[in-house]
Design a protein around this nucleic acid. Sequence first.
DNA 1: AATACATATGAATTAGATTTCATATGAATA
DNA 2: TATTCATATGAAATCTAATTCATATGTATT
Lengths: 107, 107
Amino acid sequence: MNNNTYYLFFTNLANPLKMDIIFCLRDKEKNVSEIIKECGVEQSKVSHALSSLKACNIVQVKQEGKERIYFLNKDTIVPMLKLIEKHANVHCKCKCCDNETCGRRKK
Amino acid sequence: MNNNTYYLFFTNLANPLKMDIIFCLRDKEKNVSEIIKECGVEQSKVSHALSSLKACNIVQVKQEGKERIYFLNKDTIVPMLKLIEKHANVHCKCKCCDNETCGRRKK
DNA sequence: AATACATATGAATTAGATTTCATATGAATA
DNA sequence: TATTCATATGAAATCTAATTCATATGTATT
């Protein structure tokens, strides 16, 4: 294990579309067309995002006919999101991250 | 809470220097000069990195004389790093993240 | 009060990740 | 087997965050 492991993992998640996809898969596995429709973005964009999420095993795939069903590997990501939620509840009561307070643009 | 909260948090951590700083502060609080020396990088680089980590309350500061002592807010980041470590142990036995397998450059 | 030391800040540049768009692949159906 | 549907892939363009470098601020020391 080295520092690359950690920052590359974070880099993979540092993207609003990928967050959308993760939330979209939180309750139920879905094929790409469904993800596209729910997220409301262009096909190849979703495909690229899924591809890098898959590379880090954040999502996994199975083939069913001509569809590919993506599902979330919840072991890591779900507790991780909970940690952020807790963190934000404690530290971002100022609507931080929802405005400019954290020094970053929102999407 | 909205998606911005999550992806902005990850964005803040998606950087090798910031990881270095976090590891550097893991056991003991340090002033900026010490961090600079340990990480072996230029001053303003460290200052900028600390500033954005502080904006998300990942680190905190206290002033002591002319020095500023930074310390880690361990509540969120330590369990988060542990999750990644566990994830990598399960999924990256291929020296993934240490080579090109995950589809990303290392630093 | 002038100087030195410690650190922060701003703006231009650079680097790296996402987007876009055209095209490829692969499974099913006619 | 030709066509369609579902999805992936590659490369160029675009965006965004990190880096760089010059300068500012703030605290202590003389």
